[in-house]
Every structure is written in C-alpha cells, then in structure tokens.
C-alpha cells in the first residue's frame, strides 16, 4: 500500500517535472511546477519529514509560483498552437547522461527506515535525540537543532533572506542605498 502510494507520487512528480521542461506555454509550465512542488511535499510527509514538507509546500508550491506569475505578466505568449517545445537534442542528451550518472549512486543509499543506516546509528544523531529535550526543553528536535545548537547557521540563513529583500529594493530602485 505504502509502496503503491510512493509509486504513484513519484511517477506524478517525474511527469510534472518533464511537463515543466517541455510545455511551450510558460503559464502551463508554472502550474506544472507548482504541481511538482506539491507532489514532492507529499513525498516528504510520507518520509516523515513534516518540517521540510511545510517549507516545500509554502515556498515551493505557493510563494515561488506567485513570484513566477508576477514575472510572466511582463512577457508575451509565444505564437503558434504547439503544446510542447521542440526537443533540443544536445542538451537533452547531456541531461539524460547526467541523470544516468546520478542514478548509479542510488544503489549506495540506505533503504527507507533502515535501523542500521549510518544516519540512524551515528553518534551525533544519538546525542541530539538524547540531549535535545533535557538541554533545551523543546520537543521538536529539528527546531532545537536549528535555533539552539546551530543558531549561528540559522542567523546566517536569516541574513540571506534579509539580503534578498534588500537586493530587490536596490535593483528595483525603490530605495537608493548606493
């Protein structure tokens, strides 16, 4: 049952990704991309990573889609009524080759939920699982690691987000800082 669900979802995700690449109309491609992000978010939920799933659903499927939509308002639709883009064979061969190379590494990944996988048996994992609650009194270990153990890294991430906002203000000349 679980396997069937994974199969359906991953097939959907792959086809959505191909649709993004090949659809000629940019609006359709953006909608396919939102569908792709949403499928990936559900895969993350099945893999028991709700924090990542929330981010993917909110940012990938929601905000990015809206920003893309804003961008294409300023473009014109290509003429003609072909549904799909012509395949450019050079890049297609390179991309397929790259995917093939990456697929060879799949065999060395641990199976899902494998208790003997390096991540599950690692000393660091054990340390966080045992000490996160006594030391921080926060029940979500992910939050404990992000905001306490790795607080400095998270500050860096916040700075990146801030820099993105400032960069847009400067580039669009809403504020003159330079």
């Amino acid at each position: 049952m679980q396997l069937l669900l994974y199969g359906v979802l991953l097939t959907f995700v792959v086809f959505a990704a191909l649709a993004v690449a090949f659809l000629r109309d940019i609006l359709s491609a953006i909608i396919a991309f939102a569908g792709f992000s949403f499928g990936v978010a559900i895969v993350y939920i099945l893999l028991r990573a709700p924090d990542v799933a929330l981010t993917e659903a909110a940012v990938g499927a929601g905000v990015t889609t809206v920003l893309f939509l804003l961008a294409i308002v300023r473009t014109v639709r290509p003429g003609g009524d072909r549904l799909f883009e012509r395949v450019a064979w050079g890049p297609a061969i390179i991309a397929t080759g790259l995917v093939g190379v990456l697929l060879t590494t799949v065999r060395s990944l641990p199976t899902i939920g494998d208790p003997t996988s390096p991540v599950a048996t690692s000393e660091i994992t054990r340390y966080y699982l045992e000490n996160a609650y006594p030391q921080t009194e926060v029940e979500n270990v992910v939050t404990a690691i992000l905001a306490a153990y790795r607080g400095f890294d998270t500050l860096g991430e916040a700075a990146v987000v801030l820099a993105a906002g400032l960069a847009v203000l400067v580039v669009l000349r809403k504020e003159v800082y330079v």
Partner: peptide, 14 residues
C-alpha cells in the same frame, strides 16, 4: 514550532 513540525521559516511563509 517548538512542540510540533514547523517554525519561523515555514510560519513566516504561510
């Protein structure tokens, strides 16, 4: 975010 899935990034985006 401290007790269940989520946190500042996700909440802020929503």
């Amino acid at each position: 975010g401290a007790e269940s899935a989520g946190g500042g990034f996700q909440g802020g985006a929503i």
